[in-house]
Design a protein around this nucleic acid. Structure first.
Lengths: 128, 128
DNA sequence: GGGTTGATTAGATATCTGTCAATATTGACG
DNA sequence: CGTCAATATTGACAGATATCTAATCAACCC
């Protein structure tokens, strides 16, 4: 449903310091940033992304928190729905990994230096 | 109290995909990301940062929104308290500009590519 | 099949957030 | 000093969010 093609005007991945974000694009970005706006989720994402192999199952990471399992699950779901995390069930366990293109997209938007068009790759949303 | 020196281990600006964020560091980052987690604030920041001269007064940008003036003021305050925006009064007007080092810091944390130590500059918190 | 372990969903609740109207503050200008 | 214009602060309130416990679902093992 949110599968629409982004405008080819370059507004997509242009740093926000370059030109004003459109209302639409700001909405999508805000959803991702909001997902990162919680210490637990940030650590969760980091634990998953930095885990050997680039992926981790819930049991691997939930020990790092003083929270109930459902709470962890809830935060993982938020990250997943924001497109920052993907997951797959393998037998009893569910494995999570970070979505690099989502991170790259956010990174490109925040870029403060006047990097010319270096991050045009980040526009490719390979999630289709 | 959150004024402590960050560990010199490189954990500060190391991308979160490299190693797990510490609890402390995640807290600080989350405060910034949370500030970005609202479409209005994202656009506000972008409008300020992309404004000619890199700064804008409130009256320049508040017309872009269908919100009351106090609401705009509130969002600007959130961005300011998160360290993403700075401001200065000049006569009747208050001018805002983006804090590049804050953006760079966030960008460095999100970096997904295995860039070696390119963003060590971002560690310099020149906000003193 | 029945039990065990891992993970998600549901329901409840206290807290946080975004918004507005009203009011206060700050500085400019007669 | 009084008034006006631009911002900020306060107080109130509806809606969202984080967290928990209890219940449910999924897959493995005996």
């Amino acid at each position: 449903m949110s599968n629409q093609v982004l405008p080819a005007t370059g507004a997509c991945c242009s740093p926000l310091v370059r030109e004003p974000l459109t209302e639409d694009w700001a909405g999508g970005l805000a959803r991702m940033f909001k997902a990162l706006g919680d210490p637990v989720r940030l650590r969760l994402l980091s634990l998953v992304a930095s885990h050997p192999g680039g992926e981790a199952c819930v049991c691997d990471i939930s020990e790092s928190f003083d929270l109930s399992q459902p709470t962890i699950s809830h935060h993982l779901k938020v990250l997943r729905e924001a497109g920052l995390l993907d997951c797959e069930r393998r037998g009893t366990w569910v494995y999570y990994w970070a979505n690099p293109s989502a991170l790259q997209q956010l990174c490109a938007v925040l870029r403060a230096e006047p990097g010319p068009a270096v991050q045009s790759e980040a526009c490719a949303e390979g999630s289709s």
